[in-house]
């Protein structure tokens, strides 16, 4: 059965992944037996050796990060499609057709980059303080 062959093939890789997880637990368990344990509540503070923190770190962050993630998804999925193309490229069956296809594909993909560049996605990181307060006041 084809399915079983695949299982054996990647079972090796899976076993190594599992071993990775198990070995990762080891270094965390050993100190439980040999390390000191403090009873002080203070040592469990956030950033204990600094000032007392104000509020939680779980706040909303800038929407600009979402745009970066979107371009990344566009590119990385597209690159995934290129892997099979690269494997059969230039096997002699077509003269120019596969080059034109790759060029078109990369061309359209690059438009995403040009678009986000023109829309200023890559330069919002340094908004000045005055602009920030202005935005809040709007």
């Amino acid at each position: 059965m084809a399915g079983m062959e695949h299982f054996a093939e990647y079972g090796f890789f899976g076993a190594l992944l599992l071993a990775g997880v198990l070995l990762a637990v080891g270094p965390v368990v050993i100190p439980l037996f040999i390390s000191p344990r403090s009873r002080s509540e203070k040592s469990r503070d956030t950033y204990e050796c600094g000032m007392d923190t104000i509020g939680s770190a779980w706040v909303r962050f800038d929407l600009a990060f979402y745009l970066f993630a979107l371009i990344f998804v566009a590119f990385s999925v597209a690159v995934l499609y290129l892997f099979p193309v690269a494997l059969v490229y230039d096997d002699g069956s077509y003269l120019w057709r596969d080059f034109v296809a790759v060029a078109l594909f990369l061309g359209i993909l690059s438009l995403a980059l040009v678009y986000s560049w023109r829309r200023g996605v890559f330069s919002p990181a340094l908004r000045t303080t005055s602009q920030r307060t202005h935005r809040v006041g709007e």
């Binding site: 990762a24 637990v25 965390v28 100190p31 000191p36 403090s38 040592s43 956030t46």
Partner: peptide, 24 residues
Amino acid sequence: LGKELITPRHASTKLYLAAPILIF
């Protein structure tokens, strides 16, 4: 190895403990 393992009080325990394992 002999150092104490501290989990911060306000941390999300599951994520905090899973992170080193995920990377390793």
